[in-house]
Each structure stands twice: as structure tokens, then as C-alpha cells.
């Protein structure tokens, strides 16, 4: 498994369900070996885009190419795309080994070779020795990894994952994210990933495409989209963000860039009244109000000083360099 993943090019895809436009003239290029995440709320069209790419859904106009080849006449089963489904879609009537070996069996591989590859794949995802188990006897995390192994074992040109970690608890999610990252690097896979979880997108991706209303509203590295959101929507969708208006127009400011100091009795601009104090573990989140401006700040716990109380007045400030202006 040393080959490199292939490129995907989506050009001007438009698709309707009835009269509802779910994909609107959407285009994107995904480079070989890239980990590209489509991030969006439910209904934004991200899963539909995935299905269009894999070949499950027809579309009215546009083109999907893989490695420069138009996929128009290539049915799903010949596209060599590994897919991990949201609910894993493990075949309940086959044991784990048969599930993983299914794609190889389809490709006409000899039984002994399949068995070897299945064992390797199981070892790769840390499930060695579970080949005989029925999927129903596995935990959610184990099922997830079987689904991953099943998609990987066919040596796919592209690995497509549709909210694959949604059903797992946080710790497991983090562990698998790490494993996924390593696999991606080790195998030089092209991975197309769909999620609504911004943290997951930020942790995993080389590139994030944020979707809304069947369009990509912004794409770029996690750093770019986080710190240089092009619209207030992107800014608030990706983590928390203060969106204020000043004389120069709307501005975005991340809460961790807001500084807060006690300001008893003070008033006027830059002073706000605390409405909520939220314990975050690593720090605390302060929500305060300055007229019609809601101020959110994430600050460390004050060492030795008394904690902020609701109703207390604070003075908030920020560095002008941290302020982001929309184009």
C-alpha cells in the first residue's frame, strides 16, 4: 500500500431534489494525497456532494473527474473509491473477516490472499484476532474501525468518509482521529471527509471547504479559514467569534483575543456587565454586555484574584492586529 491517492476535480455540479437546489454550480479541486474536509450544517449539501462524487447520485449538470478522467460513464462499483459510512453499514450477515474481505472477493482475489490481507488490515486498525466475530458483537469504535479497514483494504484511489465518527464518544473520537491522521500520512491517501463538527475538521484536514446552501462559501487551510473568515457566517460557524460593528464596518474577533479586567464603578465605551461565567476546564468563558454589543472572552483563571461574578463590571480590550475585517 504505497501508492499515492488520486486527484478529484468537481466542476460546476448542480443538483435539485424536486424544486430544491441542493448543489449550486459547485466546483473544487482536491489534490492527490490531500485530506479535504467538507464542513457544513445539516442540509448544506455536503453529503449529497459526497454521493455525487462517489457516483450514487445523478446530477443535472457539471462533471466529476478522478485522476483527470471523467467519471460520467463509470458506475460506482468501478470507481475504486473506499467509503466509510455514517452508520458503518457493516453487512450484518457476514462476520468481520468477510466484511473486510468482500471488496477483495469482488476483485477476484484468491481466498488465501484475502485471508492474509484481512488479517493485515485488522492489525492495522488494532483489531487483530476479531475476524470471526459478527459485527453486532463489536463496540461502536470497533465497528467504526472495521468499516475503515474494509474501505482501506481495497487499496482505494480515494477514501471517502461520511461523518464517520459522529456516533462515538469524545475520547474514542480523539483516538481515532489521531489514528486517521497517521494512516493518511503513512498511505498518502486522498481523503474526502464530511462532517458538521468544526473541531474535527480543524484537527484533521489539510483543507476545509465550508458549505452552505449547496455552495462552498470558503475553502482553505484550517488556519486560513479560522483566522480569515470571509463572511460572518464562516466566522461563527468555525468556533466562537465576536461579530461587532464599528465605524469601519463589521469586524470579527476571536474570544481568546479579548482581554478582560475588573472595572468596578466604571462606565462608558469598553466597559461591559458580566452576564455569564462559564467554566471551561482550561480557562473560563465570560459573556458580557456592552450596550447592544455582546462580548465573549475566553481567559485564563486569575491566579490569586477573586473570580468574576455576574453583574460585575469589566473593561475589555483587544489588540488591533487580532481584529479581522471581512472583504
Amino acid at each position: 500500500m504505497t501508492k499515492r491517492g488520486k486527484s478529484v476535480r468537481i466542476e460546476g455540479i448542480t443538483k435539485h431534489y424536486g424544486s430544491a437546489r441542493v448543489l449550486d454550480d459547485l466546483s473544487i479541486d482536491i489534490a492527490p494525497g490531500e485530506f479535504c474536509t467538507f464542513l457544513g450544517a445539516s442540509g448544506s449539501g455536503k453529503t449529497t456532494l459526497l454521493k455525487v462524487m462517489v457516483g450514487f447520485e445523478p446530477f443535472e449538470s457539471g462533471r466529476v473527474s478522478i485522476d483527470g478522467r471523467d467519471m460520467c460513464d463509470v458506475p460506482v462499483e468501478r470507481r475504486n473509491i473506499g467509503m466509510v459510512f455514517q452508520n458503518y453499514a457493516l453487512f450484518p450477515h457476514m462476520n468481520v473477516g468477510a466484511n473486510i474481505g468482500f471488496g477483495l472477493e469482488v476483485r477476484g482475489m484468491a481466498k488465501a490472499a484475502i485471508a492474509r490481507r484481512v488479517d493485515d488490515a485488522l492489525a492495522q486498525v488494532g483489531l487483530a484476532g476479531l475476524a470471526e466475530r459478527p459485527p453486532a458483537e463489536l463496540s461502536g469504535g470497533q465497528q467504526q474501525r472495521v468499516a475503515l479497514a474494509r474501505a482501506l483494504v481495497i487499496d482505494p484511489d480515494i477514501l471517502v468518509m461520511d461523518e464517520p465518527l459522529g456516533a462515538l464518544d469524545k475520547n474514542l473520537r480523539h483516538a481515532i482521529q489521531l489514528q486517521l491522521k497517521q494512516l493518511h500520512r503513512a498511505l498518502s491517501l486522498t481523503i474526502v471527509y464530511v462532517t458538521h463538527d468544526q473541531d474535527e475538521a480543524l484537527h484533521l484536514s489539510d483543507r476545509i471547504a465550508i458549505m452552505d446552501g449547496g455552495r462552498i462559501v470558503q475553502q482553505g487551510t484550517p488556519r486560513e479559514v479560522y483566522f480569515k473568515p470571509r463572511t460572518p457566517f464562516v466566522a461563527t460557524f468555525l468556533g466562537e467569534c465576536n461579530i461587532w460593528n464599528d465605524a469601519a464596518g463589521p469586524l470579527a474577533l476571536r474570544p481568546e483575543h479579548v482581554a478582560v479586567a475588573k472595572a468596578e464603578g466604571a462606565s462608558g465605551p469598553g466597559v461591559a456587565v458580566v452576564e455569564a461565567v462559564i467554566f471551561l476546564g482550561g480557562g473560563q468563558k465570560i459573556v458580557a454586555r456592552d450596550g447592544d454589543r455582546q462580548v465573549t472572552a475566553i481567559i485564563p483563571f486569575p491566579v490569586g484574584a477573586p473570580e468574576l461574578q455576574i453583574g460585575e463590571r469589566i473593561r475589555y480590550s483587544y489588540d488591533d492586529c487580532s481584529v479581522h475585517r471581512f472583504d
Partner: peptide, 13 residues
């Protein structure tokens, strides 16, 4: 339905 999708993505006609 998603099982059939899975089978097809694995190359089954």
C-alpha cells in the same frame, strides 16, 4: 439501503 451503497462502493455490481 446504505448496505447496498457500501457493497457497490467496494466494487460489487
Amino acid at each position: 439501503a446504505s448496505l447496498f451503497d457500501a457493497a457497490r462502493s467496494l466494487g460489487a455490481g
